[in-house]
Write a protein that binds this DNA or RNA. Structure first.
Lengths: 362, 362
DNA sequence: AGGCCTTGATTAAACGATTAATCAGTTTTT
DNA sequence: AAAAACTGATTAATCGTTTAATCAAGGCCT
């Protein structure tokens, strides 16, 4: 603790007032029995001396560090800022700090990252798992933010509902041939979005899914997606499963001289930072990260402080009523948070030469 | 510490081997004098018992938490992932964890965020300051990542050089009328980039600076930048001071039917995630964040562990030889890291109907 | 052979906070 | 009036690690 190395501690306050350290501790924490007048004097001198409690001392005694770990599949993911900001905020409101760990896209490193956090003594961990991975027993409560269809998911955006809403939006605009653009078919999140999307359509609407990773395996990263060709073949709407892909689609279409939204409609997902400032601004689905983070952190803190509701996610052979196994997945009552449709300028009715005058609903 | 709450500790290992805790501690840390044979046995049982040292106990005794704070002006900034990832990596290599704090764009909250970190006992802090703010005395070593022209800067990209390189690139391509696009004239970083940019041009080249924030004050956020009009007036190159603005320029020009790079050239800064996947892929300047983070973390760790080179940045009236004032700005020998020009498809010679066939230099 | 250095271990004192147990007065109860 | 209960404080143990100080024993020197 560089913080309180030389700074005042409880005993210094106690000494300067001629009382015992226990009394000072009780006064500041409000736990024991201390006269109101003395509490006031202790508070005053503590403030005067600039007292800052030592987390190390407290942690050693209480067994709690007051820190949560945040494990991300890949920090460089553009969605990360939203997540980190929301989780950090919820945690700080609950009195916790956030220690970050990056698994850098590597599946094996996810376990390693978790271990690093555990060794640092975090009280709990929020994990946004790499797709398809299971969470190893961490030795502390764990909240998982993924997608409702993933077993063990604590809370997440309702990606299925999000897909359904954007599907409805495109259906109502009159599109009859829609291209879905995703990264990889192994993503639970993207599959949920696709499932929801298709559930909103009727039989007359034709869809096709373009997987970017598969395409790039053949043509190299950053290759063209061949959307102009798709447009020729009658696709009037391009529903990307991420704003990053939507952006790629938008610029590729524009470059090919296909006006958006006049000729083709482009929609995205996640409302990433640039979505509002490109021209035309992207119609997209926004996750309510603030709520998701708050639910996840609350569930985690509850498990930490009260041994709240948990479920054994991985150790299937063990009995569920086993005495606290150390690592445990926490669960929340509300596990799916609805996404919100943000209509901007990139979506409109199909066919040539029509402009979308809908204003953004803030 | 949820980690070692019930787990094995030094005394358990000591007991199970019939030696003293001090010996175990010495054996595991390699500091005292312990026979090689006993070290081996201790190591073995420690591993067998799954021993994890308690950070709390260690921190309390040594006064070091092994954690660095990372203060960011606004986590939602798209540049953040790069920074966080690089800093987290460098820190973990040096054996430190990263605690994040977000000042959410608010100037006042920067101080508050720093205080939160200090209260959590971080050993040092890496700050990417909100533009124009000074760093308050934090009570622990502080490394600042901003721009070389900012007093107190520890290390950063050489934004001036970056500007110069992209200026040269556009000059060599033959552009004679260039529009610079920035967010705000109060940003040191952007001003450095502009300064470097102009230093690369000769007198025959005309430039103009468009400040987005000023424009949005009048026309509302997300408004058009009027670039089509600028193109009409003879501007052939649009050099944005951030990829976010470059993207905005690119899509706005495309929407107006101005082909990039055939008619107009667009360049950016920072090589953000989407820069390589839009069409045309953005020519941009890339910061070497890995190196910057490594230098910053190394300087910080050096100051923490050896009381390395520091300078009093703020407390001007105090003598420089004052005994360690607690909070101090660390300095590094190498404080400016060159940026690298990444040529992609969005830049080309001016004038109609010419295509840029330069390959990306990876 | 006695003194001295080296080796390999132990002892004990911190670090700073929390908290159960205790204690001396004072007030209330029986 | 003696017992019981409450109030406001103190004492002392504890969390797990590090580390200075100490100690016993064997080897080396003069």
């Amino acid at each position: 603790m560089a913080s309180t190395r030389t700074g005042p501690n409880l005993s210094r306050i106690a000494a300067s007032l001629g009382v015992s350290v226990a009394t000072v501790s009780n006064a500041l924490s409000g736990k024991g029995r201390v006269s109101a007048e003395l509490v006031e004097r202790i508070r005053a001198t503590a403030a005067a001396l600039g007292y800052v409690p030592s987390q190390a001392g407290r942690a050693l005694r209480t067994g709690r560090s007051g820190v949560l770990g945040l494990v991300l599949p890949d920090i460089s993911n553009p969605l990360f800022p939203q997540i980190a900001q929301a989780v950090e905020y919820s945690a700080s409101v609950a009195g916790y700090g956030i220690l970050i760990a990056d698994s850098r896209g590597d599946v094996g490193m996810q376990t390693e990252a978790i271990n690093r956090l555990v060794e640092r003594g975090v009280d709990g961990i929020v994990i946004v798992p790499r797709r398809g991975t299971r969470i190893a027993d961490a030795g502390c409560p764990v909240a998982v933010i993924d997608t409702p269809s993933t077993p063990g998911n604590t809370v997440s955006a309702d990606h299925w509902q999000g897909g359904r809403e954007i599907g409805r939006h495109l259906r109502d605009l009159g599109h009859r041939k829609i291209l879905l653009i995703g990264a990889s078919s192994t993503s639970n999140v993207q599959n949920d979005r696709i499932g929801g999307f298709k559930s909103a359509l009727d039989a007359t609407i034709k869809t096709e899914v373009l997987w970017i990773e598969k395409l790039e395996e053949q043509n190299g990263p950053g290759c063209l997606l061949g959307l102009a060709d798709k447009a020729q073949r009658g696709f009037t709407a391009f529903a990307a499963l991420s704003d990053l892909h939507a952006l790629r689609a938008l610029t590729e279409l524009q470059r090919a001289g296909i006006a958006v939204p006049d000729i083709a409609t482009v929609t995205g997902f996640d409302d990433l930072i640039w979505s509002a400032v490109v021209t035309p601004a992207l119609t997209t689905m926004r996750m309510d990260m603030e709520t998701i983070a708050e639910i996840a952190v609350t569930a985690l803190v509850n498990a930490i402080e009260n041994g709240g509701p948990t479920e054994k996610g991985e150790l299937d052979e063990a009995a569920a009523d086993e005495p606290l196994p150390g690592g445990r997945l926490v669960s929340a009552e509300k596990s799916r948070v609805p996404m919100r449709l943000v209509i901007r300028q990139s979506s409109g009715p199909p066919g040539p030469a029509r402009t979308n005058l809908l204003a953004e609903n803030s």
